[in-house]
C-alpha cells in the first residue's frame, strides 16, 4: 500500500505552520516527529494515560487518538507553548515546581495541559470536581497528591484567594 499524504495547516503554539502529513498519523506523531515537540509523550497510544494531552482550540484532547489531519485549521497548544518567549513560567508550571508535583516528569506535560484548561474556566471547583477533571491522567510517581495541591492552589490564587491557597 502506498502512503497517502495530506497538507495540514494549523497554528501550533501561536505560530502558523503547514506540512505534508501521513493521513494515518496521529496528532501525537505529527507534533513529535514533524515539529519535534517532544513534551507530547507516548504512554499508551490508545487514550488511556493522558501523557500526550494538548489543547486544541482551548480544549484538552488525547493527541494519540486524534488524527493529525483533523488538526487542519485548528489552534494547538503544547507544553512548549505554555511558557513565555524568554522561558517565563506560567503560574501552573511554577506551582508544579513549588509543590514538588514533578518526579520522573513523563506525565507532567499532559497533567499541566489539563490543568491549564481547567484553570482557564476561571471558576472555583470543589476538590471532587478537580479530581474528576484531572482523572484522565495516570501517574505512578506522585500519588496525585502534590499535583492536586498545585492545581488547587493555582485555582485559588487566580481567584484572589491567597489565604485559602496557603492552606491547601
Amino acid at each position: 500500500m502506498r502512503k497517502q499524504y495530506k497538507l495540514v495547516s494549523c497554528t501550533i503554539n501561536g505560530k502558523q505552520v503547514e506540512k505534508m502529513v501521513d493521513v494515518r498519523a496521529s496528532l501525537t506523531d505529527m507534533l513529535r516527529d514533524d515539529y519535534r515537540l517532544t513534551s507530547v509523550k507516548k504512554g499508551c497510544e490508545v487514550g488511556e494515560c493522558g501523557a500526550c494531552n494538548v489543547l486544541i482550540n482551548g480544549e484538552c484532547f488525547n493527541s494519540c487518538i486524534y488524527l493529525a489531519v483533523w488538526a487542519q485549521g485548528k489552534e494547538i497548544l503544547t507544553l512548549e507553548g505554555l511558557s513565555g518567549p524568554n522561558g517565563e513560567l506560567s503560574d501552573i508550571q511554577q506551582a508544579f515546581i513549588d509543590e514538588a508535583a514533578v518526579q520522573c516528569g513523563f506525565c507532567s506535560p499532559g497533567f499541566i495541559m489539563s490543568a491549564a484548561e481547567i484553570l482557564e474556566a476561571g471558576r472555583e471547583f470543589s476538590d471532587d470536581e478537580i479530581r474528576k477533571l484531572m482523572s484522565g491522567h495516570l501517574c505512578r510517581c506522585t500519588g496525585y497528591e502534590n499535583i492536586f495541591r498545585a492545581v488547587k492552589k493555582t485555582m485559588l490564587r487566580r481567584l484572589g484567594k491567597e489565604k485559602e491557597a496557603e492552606e491547601v
Partner: peptide, 25 residues
C-alpha cells in the same frame, strides 16, 4: 532543606529529553 528539584524547571517546560526524544528518525 526543601530544596527545589534540580530538574523541575526543564520538566515543566517540556524540555527534558527521554530516550525516544533523542532517537534519530
Amino acid at each position: 532543606k526543601k530544596v527545589t528539584r534540580v530538574d523541575a524547571y526543564d520538566k515543566v517546560i517540556g524540555r527534558t529529553r527521554y530516550t525516544d526524544d533523542l532517537c534519530d528518525k
